[in-house]
Amino acid sequence: MADHDSAPEKHEKSGESLMEKVTEKLHGSDSSSDSDDDKEIKSAAYSMKAKIYRLFGREKPVHKVLGGGKPADVFLWRDKKVSAGLLGVATTIWVLFELADYHLLTLVCHALIVALVIIFLLSYASNFVNKARPKVPKVVIPEDIVLSLASAVTIELNGALAILRDIALERDIRKFIAVIAGLWFISIIGSCFNFLTLCYICIVLLHTLPLFYEKYEDQVDAFAEKAEAELKKQYAIFDAKFLSKIPKGPLKDKKHL
Results as ranks from 00 to 15, higher is better:
R78T: 10
E24L: 08
I186A: 14
I173E: 06
I189C: 12
L196A: 04
K10M: 11
L209T: 11
G85Y: 02
D218C: 03
L116K: 10
E59T: 12
K49H: 11
F185R: 15
A125W: 08
V114S: 12
K175I: 11
I237H: 07
A160P: 00
V117Q: 10
K25I: 02
T106D: 14
I155E: 10
L169C: 03
L211Q: 09
G159F: 07
L183P: 03
E156F: 05
G67Q: 05
L231A: 15
A2H: 04
I180P: 00
N194A: 09
A111E: 08
I203G: 02
A100T: 01
W184V: 05
G69W: 01
E170S: 15
L87V: 05
T91R: 11
V146D: 00
C202P: 00
S33P: 01
G67M: 04
P71I: 09
L55I: 03
E170R: 13
Q219T: 08
D218E: 15
L86Q: 06
Q234T: 02
G159V: 01
F128V: 10
S244P: 06
V204W: 14
K241Q: 10
S6C: 06
E228P: 00
F193G: 01
H207P: 00
L76H: 03
L157A: 13
L26K: 08
K21V: 00
A227Q: 07
N130L: 14
I141A: 00
A84V: 04
L183G: 11
S151M: 06
V140T: 09
A152V: 03
R58T: 03
N127F: 11
V220W: 14
D172G: 02
K233P: 00
H207N: 12
C192T: 11
K138Q: 13
L161V: 06
C202D: 09
I119W: 06
V140D: 04
K64I: 03
P210R: 08
G68N: 12
C192W: 12
F195V: 11
K64F: 00
K51L: 07
L183F: 13
F212G: 01
I201Y: 07
A100F: 10
D166K: 14
P71H: 06
I145Y: 00
Q234L: 09
C202A: 13
A90S: 15
E9T: 03
I52H: 05
S31W: 03
H103K: 15
F238Y: 15
W184S: 14
